[in-house]
Design a protein around this nucleic acid. Structure first.
Length: 757
RNA sequence: GCCCGCGUGGUGAAAUGGUAGACACUGGGGACUUAAAAUCCCUUGGCCGCAAGGCCGUGCCGGUUCAAGUCCGGCCGCGGGCACCA
C-alpha cells in the first residue's frame, strides 16, 4: 500500500513530459488541429487562484483534444507592457524592464508545478523587441493601408504627472496618482480606424454562435448602430460658411415639437463665435471637468443663446434659436441637434431651465399641453396618436412614423437617412515609457513619416529615469533625435507609445509562428488559426475582444492573416472568479479588520479560532491565534462581523489564497480539481478550505483504489462485471459530455459517483 | 433611464417538459482507537408520525399542458453591461 504523495508524483511526471516534449505543438497533416488559448496574464509576479482556474480549464480541454487525436496548440505568453511596471519603478526605483522580466521568471516558476500541458517553446512576452518590432512593422503596414491616422482629440490630462489618463484612472475628477484636478485637453493622437469596420464587426457577431450571448450583446450595444435622419437647417444671422446647420436625429417623427437647436461647445460654429468674449467665457466654463461618465453625469446642463436663428425645415416662417449647450457631444452625429423638449428628457431639462417652449407632438396629456417635468418618450414599437405630425395624421406606429418622415425628407431632397455608430475610432497614443514605441518620425520638411522597416525594431532605450513626472522618452535626446528615412535630414522620433491593448490584439496570431522574422507566417497561420477555444474573464468582453476582431481584419487587409482568420476566436468561454468568504469588522480606529472563515470554528454555537493540529500551514499569511490567545473577544468580533460570502480575493482584504501554498500542502491536482468542481465554470466559485481538503481526500481515495486493484489477483479485477462495465461506460460518457459542454463541475460529479460505486 | 441575465435545502449546486435536490461541503450519529488524527459506515429540504407512511415544498400571482424548477404573461428581489449617443 503506497500513500498518495503528490509532492513526489507531480514533479516526476512533469519532468518526464518535459523530456519527451509531450506538449510541443507540431503541424501534422494527418491530424485535425485544435488551438486552445487562455487569455495571457499580466506578469504581476504572483499567480492567483483565478489563473489556476483559467489555465486548468484550458488544460482540460487541451488534454482531452490531444487524447482524442487532435494536433493541439496550447501556448502561453505575457501581456508585459503597461503602467504597473512604471509605477513600481517610480515607487521603489529600479527599471520597468528588470521588474517585468523578474516577474515573468517568478510567475513561470509558479506555473510550472501546475503541470499544465503548455508548449513553452512558443512562449513570448509583448515587451520583447522580437514581438513589438513586428507590431511596429504592422503599424506601418496599417498606415499604408489607411487604417491609422492622427487627429486632435479631447483627453483627460493630469497636469502634475503630465500624462494622459484613461477614463478609469480619473476618480472624482482627479488623477488617481497625483490627486490633481484633471483637465480636458486637446492633443494630437494616433488612431486606428476601427469605425471603418463598425457594420462588419456588428453583423459578423451573428456568426459567433459559440460565443456567450451576453458578450455578443455587449459588443452590439457598444458598437451601437442607429438609423436616423440627417438634414440641414437654413440659418439666419450666422457667420459666413454656416448657411446651413446639419443635425442628426433618430426621432424625426417628433420634429414638429422642435423648440430650439443646439450645438456642442466643440462644434466649429461655436469655435467661430469664440471671438465674442461672452461666448469665450461660456466655452471655458463648458469645457471644465473631465470626460468621464461620472463627471458628465453630475454636470449641470448649461447653455448660451447665440442669437443665431434657424428656419424649421417644414415651415420657413417658424424660427428656432440656436444655443450652445454643454450636453451635446461633438463626436456623435453632427455635433448639433434639434431640441424637442416634450419628448426628450435632456431637452426638457434644458428647456425648463431656460424658459424655452415645450410642444407636445402626441395626444398624451389630456389636461392640457403641459408635459410637466417628465418627457414622454414614445417607444418605437408603440402605436401613438400624433397631433403634430409631418406627413400623416392620427394613430401610427412610431417606427412607421419615423419611416414616413425620412421618406418625406428624401422625396423633397431636404434630408436623408443616415446610419450612425456609437463606436469611435481607437485612440492608441499613450504618453508612457513602458509600451511599444510608435514607429514614426516627425520631419520638418517631410512631415510625419513612417520609420523604414529596415530600422525596426525601434527599441526602447534602457537609460531612462522616472524621478520626474512625464514621459521619459520625451526628454531622452539621443533616442528622440534621428534622421528622416525619406530625406535624411535631422528629425525627431515620435515619443508616444501604443496602448497595451494593441499588444494583446494579435498575440494569438503570433503564437502560430512566434519566432518568425515577419509578424506571422501565412502557412502556419493557415494551419493553426482560428483559435478553436478561447477562455478568459468577462471583463474583456468588450475592449480586448473587439480590438482583436478588428485587428484580425486589419491583419488580413495588410496580408498578415488568411481570410479565414478575420474572426479569430471560433468559440469563447468566459469564466467566473474565485472568491473567498470573509468576516469583516472595524477596529477601535474604524479601520476594517478581516478574518477568514478557516480561522473560525463553531462549537456549541460559540466560535473560537481554529488551532491547527495538522501542520498544513495552508494560509501562512492569515493570523492564527494559539489556544491561549483565544480571547473572549472573538465572540464579540463575530457577533459584530459582517459576513461577505463571495468576496473577491484581494490583498487589502487578506483573503487571497496563494496557489503555491495549496500545491505545497496538497499538490497541484487538488487545487486544479477543486477549482473545477463545485460551481459551473462560468459562475464564481467560492474557495473553501474544506472543499479543498475534500478534493485531496478524493484524489487519495482514487490513489488507494488503484493501488488495491493493482494488487488484486487478475481474476478479481472486475473483468466481466457488467454492473462495473455499465458504470464505467456511463462515467466516460458523462465526463466527455461535461468537458465538451464546459460543465466541468458535472464531469467531476459523475467521477465522484463512479468511485462511490 | 435603456439593454441583458439570474432567483432550487444550512451552503456550492444537479435535473432532453416526465420520481426535485445527483455530486460535494457543513451539521448529527456510529465503528475503529487508551485518546485523538486519519479512515470507514449511517443520516441530513420542511412538517406530522413509534412506525408503515402521509402532507407541503424550486421568489410571488396567474396561464398553457395528462404532466411545469423547466414553456407563456405579470409582479418582487438580486446581479451584470451601457449611459447626456439626439
Amino acid at each position: 500500500m503506497s500513500r498518495y504523495e503528490p509532492s513526489r508524483i507531480e514533479p516526476h511526471w512533469q519532468q518526464e513530459w518535459d523530456k519527451a516534449g509531450a506538449f510541443t505543438a507540431k503541424r501534422d497533416p494527418l491530424k485535425p488541429k485544435y488551438y486552445v488559448l487562455e487569455m495571457f496574464p499580466y506578469p504581476s509576479g504572483r499567480i492567483h487562484m483565478g489563473h489556476v482556474r483559467n489555465y486548468t480549464m484550458g488544460d482540460v480541454v487541451a488534454r482531452h483534444k490531444a487524447a482524442s487525436g487532435f494536433s493541439v496548440l496550447h501556448p502561453m505568453g505575457w501581456d508585459a507592457f503597461g503602467m504597473p511596471a512604471e509605477n513600481a519603478a517610480m515607487e521603489r526605483g529600479g527599471h520597468p524592464k528588470d521588474w517585468t522580466y523578474g516577474n515573468i521568471a517568478d510567475m513561470k516558476d509558479q506555473m510550472k508545478p501546475l503541470g499544465l500541458s503548455i508548449d513553452w517553446s512558443r512562449e513570448l512576452a509583448t515587451c520583447d523587441p522580437e514581438y513589438y518590432g513586428q507590431q511596429q512593422a504592422m503599424f506601418i503596414d496599417m498606415m499604408e493601408a489607411g487604417l491609422v491616422y492622427r487627429k486632435a482629440a479631447v483627453v483627460n490630462w493630469d497636469p502634475v504627472d503630465m500624462t494622459v489618463l484613461a477614463n478609469e484612472q480619473v476618480i472624482d475628477g482627479k488623477g488617481w496618482r497625483s490627486g490633481a484636478a484633471v483637465e480636458r485637453r486637446e492633443l494630437t493622437q494616433w488612431f486606428f480606424k476601427i469605425s471603418d469596420y463598425s457594420e462588419e464587426l456588428l453583423s459578423a457577431l451573428d456568426g459567433l454562435t459559440n460565443w456567450p450571448e451576453k458578450v455578443r450583446l455587449m459588443q452590439a450595444n457598444w458598437i451601437g448602430k442607429s438609423r436616423g435622419l440627417q438634414f440641414g437647417f437654413e440659418t439666419v444671422g450666422a457667420p459666413a460658411g454656416f448657411e446651413t446647420l446639419e443635425v442628426y436625429t433618430t426621432r424625426p417623427d417628433t420634429l414638429m415639437g422642435a423648440s430650439f437647436a443646439a450645438i456642442s461647445p466643440d462644434h466649429l460654429l461655436a469655435k467661430t463665435l469664440e471671438a465674442d468674449p461672452k461666448v469665450a467665457a461660456f466655452l471655458a466654463e463648458a469645457r471644465k471637468g473631465g470626460t468621464t461618465a461620472e463627471a458628465l453625469e453630475t454636470a449641470e446642463k448649461i447653455g448660451l443663446d447665440t442669437g443665431i436663428r434657424v428656419k424649421h425645415p417644414l415651415d420657413s416662417k417658424w424660427e428656432l434659436p440656436v444655443w450652445i449647450a454643454n450636453f451635446i457631444l461633438m463626436d456623435y452625429g453632427t455635433g448639433a441637434i434639434f431640441g424637442c423638449p416634450a419628448h426628450d428628457q435632456r431637452d426638457l431639462d434644458f428647456a425648463r431651465k431656460y424658459g424655452l417652449p415645450v410642444l407636445d407632438v402626441f395626444k398624451q396629456h389630456k389636461d392640457g399641453p403641459d408635459v410637466g417635468d417628465i418627457a414622454f418618450v414614445a417607444p418605437k414599437t408603440d402605436v401613438v396618436q400624433y397631433v403634430r405630425a409631418i406627413n400623416h395624421s392620427g394613430m401610427l406606429d412610431a417606427e412607421k412614423a419615423i419611416d414616413t418622415a425620412i421618406e418625406f425628407f428624401e422625396d423633397n431632397s431636404i434630408g436623408k437617412e443616415v446610419t450612425k455608430f456609437r463606436l469611435r475610432d481607437w485612440g492608441v497614443s499613450r504618453q508612457r515609457y513602458w509600451g511599444c514605441p510608435i514607429p514614426v518620425i516627425h520631419c520638418a520638411t517631410c512631415g510625419v513619416v513612417p520609420e523604414a522597416k529596415a530600422n525596426l525594431p525601434i527599441e526602447l532605450p534602457y537609460d531612462v529615469s522616472f524621478d520626474i513626472p512625464g514621459n521619459p522618452l520625451d526628454r531622452h535626446p539621443t533616442w528622440r533625435d534621428c534622421t528622416c528615412p525619406k530625406c535624411g535630414a535631422k528629425a525627431r522620433r515620435e515619443t508616444d507609445t501604443m496602448d497595451t491593448f494593441v499588444d494583446s490584439s494579435w498575440y494569438y496570431a503570433r503564437f502560430t509562428a512566434p519566432r518568425a522574422t515577419t509578424p506571422t507566417v501565412l502557412e502556419d497561420a493557415a494551419y493553426w488559426m482560428n483559435v478553436d477555444q478561447y477562455i478568459g474573464g468577462v471583463e474583456h468582453a468588450i475592449l480586448h475582444l473587439l480590438y482583436s476582431r478588428f485587428f484580425a481584419r486589419a491583419m488580413h487587409k495588410t496580408g498578415h492573416l488568411p481570410v479565414k482568420a478575420i474572426e479569430p476566436f471560433n468559440a469563447l468561454f468566459t469564466q467566473g472568479m474565485v472568491t473567498h468568504e470573509i468576516y469583516k469588522t472595524t477596529d477601535a480606529q474604524g479601520r476594517p479588520v478581516y478574518h477568514l472563515p478557516e480561522d473560525i470554528v463553531w462549537k456549541d454555537d460559540k466560535p473560537f479560532v481554529r488551532v491547527r493540529t495538522r501542520d498544513l500551514s495552508i494560509f501562512p499569511e492569515a493570523n492564527y491565534l494559539s489556544k491561549d490567545e483565544v480571547s473572549p473577544g472573538i465572540f464579540e468580533f463575530l457577533q459584530a462581523a459582517e459576513v461577505i460570502p463571495s468576496a473577491k480575493m484581494s490583498k487589502s482584504k487578506k483573503n487571497v489564497v496563494d496557489p503555491m501554498n495549496i500545491i505545497a500542502s496538497f499538490g497541484a491536482d487538488t487545487a486544479r480539481w477543486f477549482v473545477m468542481s463545485d460551481s459551473p465554470p462560468e459562475r464564481d466559485v467560492e474557495w473553501t478550505s474544506s472543499g479543498a481538503e475534500a478534493a485531496f481526500k478524493h484524489l487519495s481515495r482514487v490513489w488507494s483504489l488503484c493501488d488495491r486493484i493493482g494488487q488484486m489477483p487478475a481474476d478479481h479485477k472486475g473483468e466481466g462485471d457488467t454492473d462495473l462495465a455499465r458504470a464505467t461506460a456511463k462515467a466516460i460518457d458523462e465526463v466527455t459530455k461535461g468537458i465538451e459542454g464546459f460543465a466541468f463541475n458535472k464531469a467531476i460529479a459523475s467521477l465522484y459517483a463512479f468511485t462511490n460505486t
